[in-house]
Design a protein around this nucleic acid. Structure first.
Length: 94
DNA sequence: AGGGTGACCCGCT
DNA sequence: CAGCGGGCCACCC
């Protein structure tokens, strides 16, 4: 299995209503945070909720055809987004 | 095969 | 406390 697929699988592991951070996943994957971003960047699979992945600060980041779109998705998932960021309560260690 | 990029993180100044 | 630089890993050209 490619590294990218492994990242995708981890994203799917993220429980609904919760989010994870690039650094967290990177540590789980024993890799660098940038690698996670690359994998998700190339990933356009609807079954991979890359929007559930945020920065260590809870910031959404800036991708996916617009941050607003990502925030909308997160809100649809039941994740509270405040000022483009999510509270640490929704950040899970997966 | 080599260089550059990307949705980052940690440390120092 | 805020700003800057370096390091991390994988993928594309």
């Amino acid at each position: 299995m490619n590294y990218t697929q492994r990242v995708h699988r981890l994203c799917k592991k993220i429980p609904k209503g919760k989010v994870s951070t690039y650094g967290r996943l990177a540590k789980k994957l024993n890799s660098g945070p940038r690698a996670v971003g690359q994998a998700l960047n190339k990933n356009t699979d609807p079954q991979v909720p890359c929007h559930r992945v945020v920065m260590s600060d809870g910031s959404i980041g800036g991708f996916n055809s617009g941050v607003k779109n990502k925030i909308t998705k997160l809100s649809a998932e039941g994740i509270l987004v405040v000022d483009g960021r999510v509270p640490p309560s929704v950040i899970t260690e997966v």
